Computed example of a mutant assay.
Amino acid sequence: MKNDSFNDPESVKTAEILARFNQAFLSHDPSPLQDLVADDCVIENTQPAPDGSRHEGKAACIQLWTGIATNSDIWFEAERIIARGDRGEIRWRLRWGSEHGSSVRGVNLMRVRDGQIIEAAGYVKGI
């Protein structure tokens, strides 16, 4: 996975947090989320179309992400993490089969504060 983060201390820290977050999905192990998600975290999810859903608070965010991370029928391929100060993005491909058509590319736009994720918006490529 490529990392295009800036080298200032805040960007480096953000990239490290996003890499730890991303690993929870790559390994299907959501246990790190407890430490990585802030009490006031807000997620704008990709589903349902067309506008997605909004999840507010640590418990709601962890519940959503745990469901995704533990789904053994899907898996993520990490493409790139980019961090700029307290903001970052994780580019990925979600797969549910071995054929190229059984996948979709997407991105999470994230914001961190005090070592925890406070904001996440997910987007996928579509028609």
Score class of each variant (00 low, 15 high):
Ala38Arg: 05
Arg80Tyr: 04
Phe76Thr: 02
Ser72Val: 04
Gly57Pro: 08
Ile43Cys: 03
Ile117Gly: 10
Asp73Gln: 15
Glu89His: 01
Arg91Cys: 11
Ser98Asp: 15
Asn45Lys: 00
Gly122Glu: 10
Arg105Ser: 12
Ile117Leu: 15
Glu99His: 14
Val42Pro: 07
Ala121Asn: 13
Cys41Trp: 04
Glu44Gly: 01
Asp86Ser: 15
Glu77Leu: 00
Gly57Gln: 08
Trp65Phe: 11
Pro48Cys: 05
Arg95Cys: 13
Leu94Asp: 04
Asp51Gly: 12
Trp96Met: 11
Gly85Val: 10
Thr46His: 01
Gly67Tyr: 10
Val104Gln: 15
Glu99Leu: 14
Ala38Tyr: 06
Trp96Asn: 12
Thr66Met: 00
Ala49Arg: 11
Gly52Thr: 05
Arg84Tyr: 07
Tyr123Gly: 01
Trp75Arg: 15
Phe76Met: 12
Arg111Phe: 08
Asp40Gly: 08
Thr70Val: 14
Gln116Asp: 11
Ala69Thr: 01
Leu109Ser: 09
Ile90Pro: 01
His55Ser: 12
Ser103Phe: 08
Gly52His: 08
Ser103Ile: 00
Ile68Leu: 15
Gly106Val: 04
Trp65Val: 03
Ala60Ser: 14
Asn45Trp: 01
Asn45His: 04
Asp114His: 13
Ile62Ala: 03
Ile118Gly: 11
Val124Gly: 00
Asp40Leu: 00
Gly106Tyr: 09
Arg54Thr: 15
Asn108His: 13
Arg113Ser: 14
Ile74Ala: 10
Ile117Thr: 09
Ser53Trp: 04
Leu109Asp: 08
Thr66Gly: 06
Arg105His: 09
Asp114Leu: 02
Gly67Phe: 06
Arg113Val: 09
Thr66Gln: 06
Ser98Glu: 15
Ser102Pro: 03
Ala69Pro: 05
Glu56Arg: 10
Glu89Arg: 10
Ala38Thr: 03
Asp73Cys: 12
